[in-house]
Structure formats: C-alpha cells, structure tokens
Nucleic acid binder design. Structure first.
Length: 413
DNA sequence: AGTCCACAGGAAGGGCAGGCGA
DNA sequence: TCGCCTGCCCTTCCTGTGGACT
C-alpha cells in the first residue's frame, strides 16, 4: 500500500508539488455562502424572533406565516436555514413530526416555475415526480395527500420568492394558503424570503393578509459587524496566522461599501486565499484581496454573459461592436445607441453568423433582459416627431467589456 | 391643437420538445 | 400510438406614449 502511495506522490509527478505543499486553508467549505456556521454574529435578535415564531410547532400548535426582508448578503437565508435546522433537530429529539423544506425560487430549472416548485416540494417529502408532463393540479393533489397523510407540521421556506411571483404570478401562494385551510391532519407554515421591500404590495389581497402575519427585517451589516462575521470564518476556514486582521478589515470595508453584503465579503476572502495559494504565498495580504476583487467583478460578468442564449449574445456583441466603432471614430458624445440602429446591426450580425434573426419585438425583450442583468443600461426617451425609443449604453467598465468582447468574439464574426 | 414618428410593451397564441396515461 | 399536459421561445397584433413639428 505504502509502495502504491509513494508511486502516486513521487517527486517526478506533476501534481507532487501540490500534494506536498501545505494549503493556506483549513476547511474551504466554511468560506462559502452555503455553509451554515455554529454562530452567526450580529443576528441574535433576528434568530430569536424567528425562533419564537416557529417554536409553537414543537408543542403541536400551528404557527403564523412569516415574511423576511433584507438586501443581498444580510444573512436572511443563513439565519432561516440555521433556525430550520435547529428546529428539526429539536423536533427529532422530542419525537415531534416537523419537517422543514427550503427552496430557492430563483434557481434556474429547479424551482423557478409553479410546476417545478411543487415538484421540488414533493421531492423534499420523498415523492418523486417527473420534471414535466403532469397537470399542475395533479401535483397539488399529490402534495396535499402527502402532507395530510399524518399529523405533522410542514414549514416551507421560499427564498427569493419575489422572482417566482414576478415570473408566474401569485397563484401558487394562493394555492398554498388555501391548501392549508383544507388540511385535516397536518398544517403548513410558509416563510417568504425576499429583498424586495415592496413585494407584498403587488400580491392578491387574500394572499397578502394570510402570508404576512409576521414580518422580519434584516438590516445590512456595517464594516465592524462584517469584520466579526469574517473573523469567525477565518478561524474555521484558514490555518493559523495565514490571514491577518488588516486583510479582514479590508474585505469588510469593501463589502460594507456594497450595502453591507456579507456574501461578497466571504467571496473576497475565499478568492484572496485561492490567489495566495496559487502564487505559493504562505500568507493572504491586501494584494491578494485587491486581485480577488478584480477577479470577482470580471468573472461574475463573463459567466453571466456565457450563460446567455445565443440570440442574446448576438445582441450584446452587436452593441459592444457599435460602441467600439463609434469610439474609434471619436464620436464620444453619441456613444449611446438607439433600438432601431441596434436592431439593424443585429440583423447583419445574424447574416454573418448564419443565425435566423428574431423580430424587433423579441430583440426589445432581450435588450430589457440584458439591462436587468446590469450588462447594459437603457433609458426610454422620446425624440418628439422622430419617435419614442430606448437609449442603450454599456454598463460594463473597459476591462470587463474587453473581456466580454473576447469571450463572444470566438463565437461571432 | 392636432398630427406624426418610432418605438415600448401587453396580450394572445403558435410551435416545439418532453413526459404521462389510456 | 395518441391525446393531453407542461415550460419555453417566439411571433403577431395591438394600444399607448411623449415631444417635435405643422
């Protein structure tokens, strides 16, 4: 056996250096947003409130539905998951039938439609259903039967619930609340998580009144609080003395500028660690954090662009090229484009690339989608007698735009 | 004040792929 | 195999818009 190991890590092996070198990380999973830590600093009150809302299920009582608000990276998801895991643990210890289901409604092709959401809930309860093919009411019926088959309490946490409602309407929320009133044995508590403070206002009155019985607001972390959050993770995630306090402060300060986003702070720390490791450095420094910041911005955008459908990419490369051409001609003042000219050039792009051009109506939607993704920015303007149109400009900085162009240049002429 | 332009954007529905049950 | 269901992408048709022009 030892002979075999020796052979695997023999010095001449190209991976030998990697295996022998001690990593700066102790446990890298700790530095991801998905990790649920033992302690969540500066969220004690919110955890207590949510615990108080859900605690009655452990005594067999029904509980109120709840709604959690807060901007990105304020700890809504992690606190909710933490409380749910603690609740399930307590329920098992006391032999109570409590089941918690957590779903992220924004996850593409997982729970981003009504059908997929109900299918995921069924999967969470151990019932497997096809990804497509069944009428939605059949799925609801199955869900109803599964939940009501015994005396139990089901807690359904729907993260980023606003994106699903925006996409499919609030019909599923109405169905869930109505289902709850018809159950004979079981009961359901719904927890909605969103970063849209005005989300409830657009809902059906009946849904709104039953869904928002309790409301929790998560405020953004400030730089000092972020430092505490990071310090916990540094202790668990990195080897001793690898990350100094100045690095933690820098990550916290950068993330605090971006609305107190803890997720961003963690990403910075993790990628700074990866950069240090790749450079064969034993300590993470400010230099690695700055490198990480650039890398996150570029990679995040490039990944989003790569994930777009081909037609959307064709529209984007058309916009990038048009802006570049205008810049080359020194026409800085008119570097904003109009829908009509973009569509015309887009058709040419399609012609060169054997792509069937879409209608202007559809391209208008693709432009709106690119706008929503923050890749371009648009503004509806009226040019009086010369019509109403959209002014389009790139929302990316030079470096990212250049990288985006190079990414798409491989696919389009 | 009325007209006109070049779209924006909503609504409805077609076509397709994929799955299910009879 | 067929009819029916789904999600998804797309087109067609339509009304609305706001400021320059007449």
């Amino acid at each position: 056996m030892s002979k075999l190991l020796n052979r695997v890590v023999a010095p001449e092996n190209i991976f030998a250096g990697y295996i022998e070198k001690e990593s700066v990380f102790k446990d890298k999973r700790v530095l991801t947003a998905a990790f649920i830590p033992e302690k969540i600093p500066h969220r004690e009150n919110e955890i207590k409130q949510l615990t108080n809302i859900l605690a009655p299920v452990l005594k067999g009582y029904t509980t109120n539905n709840a709604f959690i608000y807060g901007t990105v990276g304020t700890g809504k998801t992690i606190c909710c998951r933490y409380v749910l895991s603690q609740l399930e643990e307590a329920a098992i210890a006391q032999s109570k039938a409590v089941k918690a289901l957590y779903l992220n409604c924004k996850m593409k092709r997982v729970a981003d439609t009504e059908y997929r959401l109900v299918a995921q809930l069924l999967k969470g309860l151990g019932v497997s259903v096809p990804d497509t093919g069944l009428p939605t009411d059949v799925l609801y019926h199955k869900l109803f039967e599964k939940i009501d088959e015994k005396r139990q309490h089901i807690i359904i946490a729907l993260d980023e619930i606003d994106s699903l409602v925006r996409k499919t309407g609030d019909g599923f929320l109405y169905s869930l609340t109505r289902m709850n009133s018809e159950l004979k044995n079981a009961s359901i508590t719904t927890i909605g998580i969103t970063n849209d403070v005005l989300f409830l206002e657009g809902l059906d009155v009946r849904v709104r009144s039953s869904l928002s019985e309790e409301e929790l607001v998560f405020k953004p972390y400030d730089a000092v609080q972020l430092q505490d959050v990071l310090q916990e993770r540094v202790f668990e995630g990195f080897r001793e003395d690898v990350v100094g306090p100045e690095v933690v402060s820098l990550c916290a300060a950068i993330a605090a500028q971006e609305h107190g986003d803890a997720r961003r702070a963690l990403d910075l720390l993790r990628i700074a660690g990866e950069t240090a490791e790749r450079n064969n450095d034993n300590k993470v420094t400010d230099f690695h954090v700055n490198e990480a910041q650039d890398k996150i911005d570029v990679e995040r955008t490039v990944e989003v662009i790569k994930g777009q459908p081909k037609q959307s990419q064709a529209v984007l490369i058309t916009i990038i090229k048009l802006i570049e051409a205008q810049k080359k001609q020194g026409r800085w003042s008119d570097k904003r484009l109009l829908t009509g000219s973009v569509y015309e050039s887009y058709r040419e792009t399609c012609g060169r690339n054997n792509l069937k051009p879409l209608t202007q109506r559809r391209v208008g939607d693709l432009i709106s989608e690119l706008d929503m993704l923050g890749i371009i920015s648009t503004r509806v303007i009226s040019k009086g007698r010369y019509g109403r149109t959209r002014e389009i400009s790139l929302a990316l900085n030079e470096t990212i735009a250049h990288k985006a162009e190079r990414t798409l240049a491989d696919k389009f002429y």
